[in-house]
Structures are given as C-alpha cells and as structure tokens.
C-alpha cells in the first residue's frame, strides 16, 4: 500500500522521477495541453486600450537550457510584453523530458508563451508527446485584434507526401478574418528551406499571399534572424534567432499592417 502510494505520488506529482519510457506522452496534469493553458492565461489578461500588440519572437530552444534561463530573466525585465512565441524545435530528440525541461524554465516567464511544432519535436514519438504536452499541431488564436495562425510545416518528417503543411486549413484560417484587423502566420520550417515539402512551396506562398491583412510570416529552423520578401510578392518573411544566439526580437504590430522590430541581446547569468 505504501509502495503504491509512493508510486502514485511520483507519477502524479511533478517530480517525474518514475518514468516508463523516455518517449512516453504521459505527463502530470499541470503540464498537459500547455497551449490551451497559456491561451487561457493570455485571454484572462485583457488587452489594454492601446492598439499596439507587442510580443517576443525566438525559436529553436532545443537543448539550450542554460540559455533558456537567461532568456527568461531578460524577457522578465522587458515592459509591456503581451506574450512570447517560440518558433518550434522545443526539443532536440522529441523526448518528453526535454519538453518538460523547457517548460520548467519558461513557466517562470511573467507572460504566457506559445509554441509551434518543429521538426525535432516530431522525431520518434515526439509528435504524440508534443500533442500531449502542448496541444494541436495546427491552431489559431485571436488576441488584440490579431489572428495568429500556427501550423506544422515540417514536411520532411512526413516524407514530403503533400499533406504538410495543410494548405486547406491554412486557407480557411486566413480567409476567416471575423473580428480581427490583422493576421500573422507562425511555423517552424520556412517555405524557402529544403525541409519544406518542395511540391507545396509555391501553393503555400500563394495561400499566404491571398491574405489581405497579413502583417508578416514568422518561422524558425535556420537558427538566424532574417527579414525579407523571398517570393517578391510584398509578403514579409521573418526567421528567428535560436536560443544559442542569445538574441531575440520584440515585434510590435499596430494599425492594419504596420510593425516595428527590436533586437535584444541577453547575457549569460554571472
């Protein structure tokens, strides 16, 4: 009885010491469906009168736990940040512990954080782990009059079968602009990368371009900041610093499609 009690406590508590597989999807209830949890936190903080939305943009925290702690310390010193977005590759190996290690650090942020799945998060059982810990691979939310559309673009992980990214879903999300002034797309693998399904690059760019209220397209994966119009169609594509670069961007959006970009460097803790 005592043993089973101990097991139950360990399995249910956040100690996490008792693990049945490094690939398990089971996590304590407090660490399940973090996307939903963070969206509840976000929407319970009513947006201030100001039209400007201000958020942190960074990607690829995979196996950078020291940097994650320094990142949290730096972001917590910023003022008027609405939330943080991580452009995929939360984990390096798709293991449950890795996603929890990142969460145990990012939960110390003063603001909610939101993620999108990266290719490393899909390795092994990672896709199922991500769905358990964070939630849906494709999802959208509205905050501050802005629609965020977050989707899985890790085509190589599906063997380039023409199904990922889900262009039908993306098109519908972009077309549904009810009660929003702006849209922003967030994914991990940018359509300019060789890990994006080559047959879907042009259809994807066309779908993105169809939006009349898109501010910009955000992704990670290439571990460096870029800002350009690779399809020469007036659509701005940005990629994020990874955690190792010890830099992040603060993006401010306002008006219909106006935005401002700041770059912040964060130092290692002394």
């Amino acid at each position: 009885m005592q043993v089973s009690g101990l097991l139950g406590m360990c399995a249910l508590s956040s100690c996490g010491l008792l693990e049945f597989s490094p690939n398990q999807t089971l996590v304590p209830a407090a660490e399940r469906q973090l996307t939903t949890q963070n969206l509840i936190r976000l929407t319970s903080r009513p947006k201030q009168e100001s039209d400007t939305l201000r958020f942190v943009f960074i990607g690829d925290c995979q196996r950078f736990y020291d940097e994650a702690e320094d990142f949290v310390a730096s972001v917590n010193q910023q003022r008027k940040i609405d939330f943080v977005i991580i452009a995929g590759d939360i984990s390096d190996f798709g293991l449950v512990r890795e996603m929890r290690w990142i969460h145990h650090r990012l939960r110390k942020l003063n603001v909610p954080y939101l993620t999108v799945i990266g290719n490393h998060d899909e390795v092994g059982n990672g896709r199922a782990v991500y769905e358990s810990v964070f939630g849906p691979l494709n999802y959208s939310f509205v905050y501050g009059g802005t629609k965020f559309i977050c989707l899985d673009t890790n085509g190589r992980e599906y063997g380039f079968q023409g199904q990922v990214p889900d262009l039908g879903w993306l098109g519908k999300q972009l077309a549904d602009t009810a009660n929003t002034r702006r849209s922003i797309v967030l994914c991990h693998v940018p359509p300019t990368d060789e890990d994006f399904d080559p047959n879907l690059v042009q259809p994807y760019a066309r779908t993105i371009r169809s939006s009349r209220q898109l501010v910009f397209h955000l992704s990670g994966h290439i571990h460096r900041f870029t800002n350009g119009q690779p399809f020469h169609d007036s659509v701005q594509y940005l990629t994020a610093y990874n955690f190792r670069k010890r830099h992040y961007n603060i993006l401010s959006v306002w008006g219909r499609r106006k935005f401002n970009l700041e770059t912040v460097a964060y130092a290692p803790a002394l």
Binding site: S21, Q24, L26, N125, A128, V129
Partner: peptide
C-alpha cells in the same frame, strides 16, 4: 516492457 497507449500515446 509494455507501454500502454494511455502512457505512450500508442502501445509500445
């Protein structure tokens, strides 16, 4: 070892 779907998403 057996990992049921409730623990691993799929049986393993």
């Amino acid at each position: 070892g057996y990992v049921p779907p409730s623990v691993g998403g799929r049986a393993m």
